[in-house]
Design a protein around this nucleic acid. Structure first.
Length: 806
RNA sequence: GCGGUCGUGGCGGAAUGGCAGACGCGCUAGGUUGAGGGCCUAGUCGGGGUUUACUCGGUGGAGGUUCAAGUCCUCUCGACCGCACCA
């Protein structure tokens, strides 16, 4: 009978769950290995074939490490707060908690069907009060240390969702979820001071074993730039403003200044006759979305305020303009313009006929700005210096004269942390009637998210929690003072910023996790997930981790030592899978038709783990065919017992070399996450084994072990058929013998001028000199070099001989 | 525009600077079968040819380094991802 995946997969799933095969003993004495997946948001549409790709990769590592004697921590949980559940609840009137629980049940069932070796006793959900108690606790600590604060900031107000969105959640002026229009509106918000950690978040990237592309993205996101703040007086008024510049050396070339339209000074300094123009400009830009503002980037617009500033370095009066190419949110919201040496300033100056004074030699300011290095000219005491020296000297001068100072600016902005939503962790803060604000006492955590049937946004910007009087209103039992709970909730990023810590000690009620256990298990050895989390999630988690390190909660500076981003699985038409395109593949269907092992095998065989590759039904069939071939090779289809080809002794062991090669390559490839080549090597072994009449039992057992991390169900069943009573999970990983990899006779390629001209079989121990001699004496070679002079012979032992002859 | 990643058969892809195309899909042929499917075996980069171990060309394009380049360097074209008026 053919391999029956349904029967076998059901059998072993029940066995694993019943025996808690994958339970982690967190305090064991074994070496530790922590393999973490990015936990999913349990959406209503269930698991997607993209999920199991990364999960299979970590599962392979986990299963191999168990067999190599490690204590493995391999957990799964749910990032279950989030807007979709709230939107669903609004649409249907159902409780988002119930909806979420139902989705989690589906996800858990689907994930278990795929045979991942998770310790289900460590399952956590960010929505569980026992979990978010500690999310709130971390917030309180941040608040105590002054890293959580309230600020009035212009935020992305989305009327349709009745909530505020983070910049990151707004794409092209529309909400990321739902695609509703978004407008700017100032509001009081909780902010987290991630900028205080900017330098450390940047520097510590160097120590991490992460893909260079992700590190680079984080560096760009943090966007550190060094320069100077320079103070400009406003001519004839008792006002001044500060600009940030990376090129203080070009101060002599500053011919005008530009303020962001939102800059506080604009109203004060604008002259009467320019007032109308300026107001009109500001009004026009206010109504523009960010998208429209950037779309108009090619044509720079602005308007003169009528006021002049005094260039501190030469006391010249320069006009002050406003323009929306200057952003209020970056630097000081004001710039000095050096049109001769900055392309944006150049374009602006050309448009409005402003002066352009070159202060560096080289370039042609008739055509474009000169942004390269050169000797300074027209620059007083900076003349003759190059860029770097002039920057230093200019800053020294500014500091001495009290007109500026060295300054580092980041692109990174503080983390807008509050959400006007129901379905999130309540922020544990109370606003008292005397105007003070305090954190909720630690002993009162968690602040439970109350159940309610009214979760519609208030529409005023407050969250639905504001309508629940018995929850919102509190009285201090000691003083009798009345207060109101913070009604904002936390963003989805909160719970996912520390969940990897809770997995280490998921039921601890006294601490977020036991300190000794954290010492044992951190950092995470390997963390695999999608590249879409390259910046935000990973930056936020690193920030919280560093904070927890500073207050002595965690022992490491960084949470994730090795990170890997799996690629995307595209639809068969090579496009991203989506319902609207009708190219979505449901893992349940594949588990039913081909089996979980086949799905795992196929996803690992498609190509490199980090590549984005299109789904192929015939490719999937091929993966199943391989498992069938393995089954038929080892199992007699009539008796369903072990094939009589499998024996304890053979006369002529034809498989020895390929077996040892396979053990070596598969072991190394798994370690390097090169699963596609590991699988191809196993295919080579099976192809060879088919050509022999007898196969040593030891090879079969070794092969089944190698296969087990990828296809655990069929491996368990074969292990059982091989006569073992216990699970294969903790059997020793196969080893290989290096000496068995060498042939006595090896083939050497003989090249002339780098082109293959002959091959010869030689003894493996032949020396360089002998090899050279043999090559030169080879018949075909002799003929070719007969009329040539041999200039040089390069010998690569074991590989080739290259003769340079002409 | 800036930054990153990457261009290899009909397709997915493989190759510590050392025999390009492993492995799989697809296709072709033979075998097995009442037939089909399945399975087994063999072939499958292109041109030429005396078609087993012959020969020439070949990794987006153009140069370069090297005894030797898919791999390293320069330029260029193209694709994808991220950021985007960041002073």
């Amino acid at each position: 009978m053919a391999y029956d995946h349904k029967k076998v997969e059901t059998k072993w799933n029940q066995y694993w769950l019943k025996n808690k095969t994958f339970k982690t003993d967190a305090s064991s004495n074994k070496k530790k290995f922590y393999a973490l997946d990015m936990f999913p948001y349990p959406s209503g549409s269930g698991l997607h074939v993209g999920h199991p790709e990364g999960y299979t990769a970590t599962d392979i590592l986990s299963r191999m490490k168990r067999m190599q004697g490690y204590e493995v921590l391999h957990p799964m949980g749910w990032d279950a707060f989030g807007l979709p559940a709230e939107q669903y609840a609004l649409d249907t009137g159902n409780d988002p908690a119930e909806f979420t629980d139902k989705n989690i049940d589906t996800f858990r069932r689907q994930i278990q069907d795929l045979g991942f070796s998770y310790d289900w006793d460590r399952e956590i959900s960010t929505t569980d009060p026992d979990y978010y108690k500690w999310t709130q606790w971390i917030f309180l600590k941040l608040y105590e240390k002054g890293l959580a604060y309230i600020d009035e900031v212009p935020v992305n107000w989305c009327p349709a969702l009745g909530t505020v969105l983070a910049n990151e959640e707004v794409i092209d002026g529309l909400s990321e979820r739902g695609g509703h229009p978004v407008e700017r509106k100032p509001m009081k918000q909780w902010m987290l001071r991630i900028t205080a950690y900017a330098d450390r978040l940047l520097e510590d990237l160097d120590e991490l074993d992460w893909p260079e592309s992700i590190k680079e993205m984080q560096r760009n996101w943090i966007g550190r730039s060094e320069g100077a703040n320079v103070t400009f007086e406003v001519a004839g008024q008792d006002e001044s403003f500060t600009v940030f510049t990376t090129r203080p050396d070009t101060l002599f070339g500053a011919t005008y200044a530009v303020l962001a339209p939102e800059h506080k000074l604009v109203e004060k300094i604008t002259t009467a006759d320019q007032k109308e123009h300026v107001s009109a400009y500001i009004e026009k830009n206010k109504s523009k979305s960010d998208l429209e503002r950037t779309d108009l980037a090619k044509e720079k617009t602005g308007v003169f305020t009528g006021a002049y500033a005094i260039n501190p370095i030469n006391n010249q009066e320069i006009p002050i303009w406003i323009a929306d190419y200057v952003l209020a949110s970056y630097g000081t919201g004001a710039i000095m313009s050096v049109p001769a040496h900055d392309q944006r300033d150049y374009d602006f100056a050309k448009t409005y006929n402003l002066a352009i004074i070159p202060v560096l030699e080289g370039g042609d300011i008739e055509k474009e700005a000169f942004t390269e290095d050169g000797k300074h000219i027209n620059s007083g005491f900076l003349d003759g210096l190059n860029k770097d020296d002039a920057i230093q000297k200019a800053i020294d001068w500014l500091e001495k004269e009290g007109k500026g100072e060295r300054q580092v600016t980041y692109r990174l902005r503080d983390w807008l942390f509050s959400r006007q939503r129901y379905w999130g962790e309540p922020i544990p803060i109370i606003h008292w009637e005397d105007g003070t604000t305090t954190g909720v006492d630690e002993s009162e955590l968690p602040v439970i998210l109350p159940k309610t049937t009214e979760i519609k946004p208030s529409g005023t910007g407050e969250s639905p929690l504001a309508n629940i009087d018995e929850w919102v209103n509190v009285t201090d039992p000691k003083t009798g003072m009345k207060g109101r709970r913070e009604t904002n909730t936390m963003p989805q990023w909160a719970g996912s910023s520390w969940y990897y810590l809770r997995f280490i000690d998921p039921t601890n009620s006294d601490h977020l996790a036991d300190k000794d256990l954290l010492n044992e298990w951190l950092p995470v050895d390997v963390y695999i997930g999608g590249a879409e989390h390259a910046v935000l999630h990973l930056l936020y988690a690193r920030f919280w981790h560093k904070f927890l390190y500073d207050i002595g909660v965690v022992p490491t500076k960084e949470p994730f030592q090795k990170l890997f981003n799996q690629g995307m699985i595209l639809g068969e038409n090579n496009e991203k899978m989506s319902k609207s395109k009708g190219n979505v593949v449901n893992p349940d269907d594949i588990v039913g038709s081909h089996g979980a092992d086949t799905l795992r095998l196929y996803e690992m065989f498609m190509g490199p783990l980090d590549a984005s590759i299109a789904w192929s039904e015939t490719g999937l069939d091929g993966a199943r065919r391989f498992l069938d071939r393995v089954w038929r090779l080892f199992i007699n289809e009539e008796t369903e017992e072990l094939s009589e080809k499998i024996v304890n002794d053979v006369e002529d062991d034809k498989l020895e070399k390929v077996y040892h090669e396979t053990v070596k390559q598969v072991t190394e490839n798994y370690q390097d996450l090169k699963f596609n080549t590991a699988i191809s090597q196993m295919m080579v072994f099976i192809n060879e084994a088919y050509k022999t009449d007898q196969i040593l039992t030891a090879y079969v057992e070794g092969f089944v072990k190698l296969l087990s991390p990828i296809a655990p169900f069929i491996a368990e069943e074969l292990w059982d058929k091989l006569g073992h009573d216990e699970t294969i999970t903790f059997e020793a990983w196969p080893t290989y013998d290096e000496t068995k990899l060498e042939e006595n006779e090896i083939e050497i390629v003989v090249q002339i001028l780098g082109k293959n001209r002959a091959r010869m079989m030689v003894d493996k121990d032949v020396t360089r000199e002998e090899l050279e001699k043999l090559a030169l004496e080879h018949e075909a070679i002799k003929e070719r070099i007969a009329d040539k002079t041999v200039r040089k012979v390069i010998v690569v032992p074991g590989k080739l001989v290259n003769i340079v002859a002409n």
